[in-house]
């Protein structure tokens, strides 16, 4: 699977475009992590729990997108974009989208 965020795949030739594919997850942080983050908020600095959580969720969204691309018969996704939005208090949505393509 070729995954890139450029319009073409460097060094490869795109022979067919299948259209948009996307994947998303909505995640809430659990209470323990929230309390830890609350404490960390006093001294500042990196919130490792959140970083990991968001990374995992983004990975999951990517996997969903790749699944969708595979079911279309594609072997690559180009022009991948990430978006994050908070849908409710304490929950965020991670969205990944791109264009499924067939690479020679």
């Amino acid at each position: 699977m070729y995954l890139v965020n450029t319009e073409t795949i460097p060094g490869k030739k795109i022979v067919e475009m299948y259209g948009i594919v996307s994947g998303s997850t909505v995640r809430a942080k659990h209470v323990g992590k929230d309390i830890m983050a609350g404490l960390k908020n006093i001294v500042g600095g990196e919130l490792k729990g959140y970083t990991e959580l968001l990374q995992e969720s983004r990975q999951e969204a990517m996997e969903r997108m790749v699944e969708q691309a595979k079911s279309m018969g594609a072997n690559g996704v180009v022009n991948i974009r990430f978006a994050t939005s908070s849908v409710a208090q304490g929950a965020s949505e991670l969205y990944v989208y791109g264009t499924a393509v067939l690479v020679e």
């Binding site: 070729y2 995954l3 060094g11 983050a37 908020n41 001294v43 600095g45 990196e46 968001l54 983004r58």
Partner: peptide, 22 residues
């Protein structure tokens, strides 16, 4: 420059502000 190989790379960080600065 001729590309031979490519891959998506990501990096992320969540940083919080401290109480005084807030």
């Amino acid at each position: 420059l001729v590309a031979t190989e490519s891959a998506l790379v990501t990096g992320s960080a969540v940083i919080s502000i401290d109480y005084f600065k807030r």
